[in-house]
Simulated scan of single mutants.
Amino acid sequence: MTTTTGRPIRIGLQLQPQHADYDDIRRAVAEAEELGVDIVFNWDHFYPLSGDPEGKHFECWTMLGAWAETTSRVEIGALVTCNSYRNPELLADMARTVDHISGGRLILGIGAGWFEKDYVEYGYEFGTAGSRIADLGKALPRIEQRFAKLNPPPTREIPVLIGGGGEKKTLRLVAKHADIWHSWGDVEVARRKVRILDQHCADVGRDPAEIERSIGVSGSPSASGDQLAELGITLFTLSSSGPDYDFGPLREWLAWRDSRNG
């Protein structure tokens, strides 16, 4: 069964680096790759988002460098990098470096940022939702320009994933800059946002088929998988938190992917 876009169904896994020792995370990454996950993501926070707010936690990009060395097949990336935490030129250089370490398997996931505790504790200006999205809009061209200047250059055109569902500003940035768009929500929310993204693409003169559509999912694929795929969504990402990293639902989504892709 093919998808409406002709792209294969892919399954991502966000390993949330909270409440776990790094040995637990390393084992989880290895198991995910062995199971056949297409992309393994972490996230870009400095504190847990659930459970004990002062619990164990590890930094995003140093971890991606380690994953680049210890994996061999899966793509890797952050879901998503917070634009506020790093100078755009530095982030581009970091991404290029992990791209080389991984042999061309990095996805540059990026978003405007939202978790106020990260900002306050690490000394970043929190601003407003509008100012953070405006900053993201300024950063994306700078990242693209730095990629073109780096020596050596990236091994490939590093796919840029933009996470967010803001219908006026974020989706317009997706239309202009993203190779992958990631959002959240049920089938009806996804249907509305896909339609709005298509209109933004028309407004900026871009073929919407160039953008892979991704969504965060949970539970069983029987509930919504086929309906979401009919909307042109082809990347389905589950989340798993430490310290246990339960992969039960993941296995069901992987089996669904394989049945869809034939």
Rank of each mutant, 00 (worst) to 15 (best):
G248I: 13
A223G: 12
D186F: 05
R206D: 02
E212K: 12
K168E: 12
D186W: 07
A190G: 06
G242D: 05
I215W: 00
L231R: 10
D203V: 08
K168C: 04
Q199Y: 05
A255C: 03
G216S: 12
K193N: 10
G216V: 05
V204W: 02
I196A: 05
G164R: 03
R257L: 11
I196E: 03
Q227W: 03
E212Y: 01
T237R: 10
E210D: 13
E210K: 15
S241A: 15
L238G: 10
P249Q: 12
D226P: 10
S183D: 15
A178I: 10
I215G: 00
A223Y: 14
F236T: 09
E212H: 03
R191C: 01
S218D: 14
G163S: 08
D207G: 06
A190E: 08
F236Q: 08
A175Y: 00
C201T: 12
K176W: 05
V187K: 01
G242A: 09
G163N: 11
G232L: 05
A255N: 13
W256V: 06
V187E: 06
D207H: 12
Q199F: 07
S222V: 10
F247A: 06
L231M: 11
V174C: 02
W181I: 01
S214H: 07
R172K: 13
D186Y: 08
L197H: 09
G205W: 06
I211Y: 03
I196V: 14
K193Q: 14
L238Q: 02
P243W: 06
S224C: 08
Q199N: 02
L231S: 09
D244G: 01
A178T: 07
C201K: 13
K193H: 13
D203L: 01
T170H: 06
I180R: 07
A255D: 14
R257W: 14
G242H: 03
R192E: 14
S240K: 02
A178C: 07
T170V: 14
I215A: 02
L250C: 08
S214F: 03
K176Q: 15
F236M: 07
H200Q: 00
E210C: 09
D198W: 10
H200S: 08
I211E: 04
V194S: 03
E252K: 13
S218W: 12
V204S: 04
R213A: 10
K193W: 06
I180V: 13
G165V: 08
G166N: 10
S220Q: 10
R257D: 08
D179A: 13
D226Q: 12
E212A: 13
P243G: 04
S222N: 07
R172Q: 12
G166C: 11
G165Y: 07
